[in-house]
Design a binder for these strands. Structure first.
Lengths: 234, 234
DNA sequence: AAATGGAGTTGATATAAATCAATCCATAAA
DNA sequence: TTTATGGATTGATTTATATCAACTCCATTT
């Protein structure tokens, strides 16, 4: 990787998160001095649940999954994260322990920024601070929605939610290569991998999606939304 | 209710939320001017999901439930809230719509504080701003735990979680009068009211709790924790 | 080329939990 | 006192979903 000069790096900081645009050059400088980069291969752990929370993760390239590790081997994947936003763990601001595990789904470049610094800057710059609050709220909202899905819907609805999430929030296309295994799709939708296969077939029969092993095509998003909306107890 | 002078009211603001202690007299004054009180009877709606989010709710007396309304009639109760903390809705900082409904469980006195003002003060005072961030993180952590419980545990584990939550976080006693119906306990644990009754009996047979209609006694919290820890897929 | 192993798939079975139905309260209203 | 009314309770039944077992289809190793 080629060495960059400061102004180049400052530009790249803003590309990590729009909210960095609120900071002064001096403040950005401060961040640069207190951050470091690392690369990860698929499957590698970037942040481990339970470990001390000393820094916030920014993804400069690649895709990661953010999940809770249950005892046993069943995980609950809360969301995926791509470049452009930080991965905020609620533990950062309270217990100072990570409450979530983050691992690379594809080859990933990550930027760790010291939590201390972010907090200090948050105190110095109210727009920046507001940006953190908004991002945290966004991520909390996502968890709320996941809870609503898991607690209130049947398999088809939950899987529909996951597919819509992938297509609208992550890949931003109707057709995409799902990098996740059926088991992982199951961990996003709280269902067994076998059921993912079966329900995926059902959705295909209804003409909502088309799947070809790792490729997924959303043929009819409205149909998916309709399936997502039908609750068990009607 | 007797009229209070300003200094009395400022003291009472701090009792609504410790975090107000970070503010100057002038800032507290500002809050007083932009807040108003209201009383609610059991069952009355304090904040309605979907409505414009213009203010943050502080409870000065009573108990409320905070929940997501599903289509149909099944709700998901995220948590209860008693005096001492604000009810932060993630929608406050993003969509400006409430994503949650808040209703009174017992007779409740509430203080509405304008979101605008809180945001302004958050920009002026970094300790205060950090307090908001911490509180939001706390509430997000709670939702995460609820998700883990609902997605990963069987009925007994989920109900145990709810009982521990009530005893440790809300009533702070081993013995308390549950103001909620069996149906509502079910909405906290994602199970049907009939199942609440059955599993409650199981827990009683195991000597973990004792129930007498509305009274609940936690006889053995460790036993409850043990039940909470056993996952389905061991 | 053979062998290994893992993901994906399919069908059969087991099980947790919801739903349904009936009954039993307690409290409030007439 | 009788009559409603709604929550709580109990048992029977149904249903959604997990689990188990077997098999296919790759990709990788030997």
């Amino acid at each position: 990787m080629k060495k960059k000069n400061d102004s180049e790096e400052i530009v790249s900081l803003v590309s990590l998160w729009n909210n960095f645009g609120h900071l002064t050059a001096a403040q950005l400088e401060m961040i640069l001095k207190n951050s470091y980069n690392a690369g990860f291969r698929p499957g590698e752990v970037i942040v481990k649940q339970g470990s001390p929370a000393s820094s916030v993760v920014f993804i400069s390239d690649g895709l990661v999954k953010v999940y809770m590790e249950g005892s046993g081997e069943k995980n609950i994947i809360l969301r995926l994260a791509a470049p452009g936003k930080p991965v905020l763990d609620p533990g950062l601001f309270i217990s100072r322990r990570n409450t979530l595990t983050v691992t690379a789904v594809s080859r990933t470049e990550v930027n760790f920024v010291s939590t201390e610094i972010l907090q200090r800057l948050s105190g110095e710059n109210s727009s920046f601070s507001m940006g953190i609050l908004k991002e945290l709220s966004q991520q909390m909202f996502l968890v709320q929605n996941k809870l609503a899905s898991v607690a209130g819907k049947r398999m088809a609805g939950r899987l529909a939610d996951t597919l819509l999430y992938l297509s609208e929030d992550i890949f931003k296309k109707n057709e995409f290569d799902i990098v996740l295994s059926r088991k992982e799709i199951g961990e996003m939708s709280n269902m067994a991998k076998e059921c993912v296969v079966r329900v995926l077939n059902e959705l295909e029969e209804e003409g909502a999606v088309k799947t070809d092993s790792s490729r997924i095509i959303i043929l009819n998003p409205d149909k998916l939304r309709e399936i997502s909306d039908q609750t068990s107890w009607m």
